[in-house]
């Protein structure tokens, strides 16, 4: 009895997760590759024949490639700054983590307010005399600007999560590690390069994994700011399911996201391995 107790306590949660994650995976495979009970590649053919699929793949990856490195860089600087003590730190921290609780839909709407033709930014620049015509961010013919708007919103909203992970990692680095390096002659940048960054590697790794996997699922903000002007994988899956009612193609979008997530996650784990954490006697 005693031995079984922890398993009994874990069982409901584990079963629930297995069901809610295992079942849809199987169902998605079934929906994607069968028709009337027979194996078929029809859905795959239809999906890859649709230019929107390749566009969605391109934009999803492009958004991640543009956004994530900037976020990592900003978050690192912010975390290092916020790891010191100074007056007003609590207030600054509070402001910095506000975006953690703002959804991508709300974030999209907020930045729409900022960037639309009669929005804050355009009015401000017009009144300052810096521009004479409003900068158009939205509309199919301004796709690149829509892309930029999405990038700005994601930097604004989702840098906080990277920042918090890295700050938490930074706070776990013992002060004596840095003081030891200082005593042995390392200047500020050497300490950053040789001590802080290597010790932060596990935190950077989990921040990158989390951000990348979320980026593969990007949906709400794109849907709000650009609609299908900028197709993304989750958005196309949503579109196929709710507007076209094509469950097979929607499932392939879902499976593409899953495959990309697993692939990228595995890559991060492999290439950002922190060797010192693996060795145990």
């Amino acid at each position: 009895m005693k031995l079984r107790l922890p398993y009994l306590l874990l069982l409901p949660a584990v079963l629930y997760l297995v069901f809610f994650i295992g079942y849809p995976l199987v169902q998605a495979l079934y929906l994607a590759f069968t028709q009337n009970g027979h194996f078929t590649l029809d859905n795959v053919r239809r999906t890859i024949g649709d230019p929107y699929f390749w566009q969605a793949l391109k934009y999803t990856i492009a958004l991640a490639v543009v956004i994530i490195p900037i976020q990592l860089f900003l978050a690192l600087i912010l975390a290092v700054v916020m790891n010191r003590t100074f007056k007003g730190k609590d207030l600054a921290l509070y402001a910095l983590i506000i975006p953690l609780t703002i959804s991508d839909v709300a974030g999209g709407l907020i930045w729409y307010t900022m960037l639309t033709d009669a929005g804050f930014l355009n009015k401000l620049l017009l009144n300052l005399g810096l521009i004479t015509q409003p900068i158009h961010f939205f509309g199919y013919e301004y796709r690149n600007m829509e892309f930029l708007a999405i990038v700005i919103e994601e930097l604004w909203r989702a840098t906080a999560i990277v920042f918090v992970i890295i700050l938490a990692g930074l706070q776990m680095i013992s002060k004596e590690y840095l003081e030891a390096a200082e005593v042995f002659g390392a200047d500020y940048w050497t300490r950053m390069r040789k001590i802080v960054i290597p010790l932060l590697k596990p935190s950077i790794q989990s921040a990158l994994i989390i951000r990348t996997l979320f980026a593969m699922q990007v949906f709400g903000v794109v849907w709000i700011l650009a609609g299908r002007d900028i197709p993304v994988l989750a958005g196309e899956g949503f579109y196929q399911l709710t507007f076209i009612k094509d469950y097979g193609v929607a499932s392939i979008y879902a499976l593409t996201i899953a495959a990309l997530s697993i692939l990228l996650g595995a890559m991060y784990v492999k290439f950002l391995k922190a060797e010192y954490l693996e060795v145990r006697t």
């Binding site: 013992s174 004596e176 590690y177 003081e179 030891a180 390096a181 005593v183 042995f184 001590i195 290597p198 010790l199 590697k201 922190a274 060797e275 010192y276």
Partner: peptide
């Protein structure tokens, strides 16, 4: 040109 031995040793774990 000093050296120091710290209470927690501060031996860097990643080296």
């Amino acid at each position: 040109n000093i050296s120091m031995v710290f209470q927690s040793y501060a031996v860097w774990p990643h080296m």
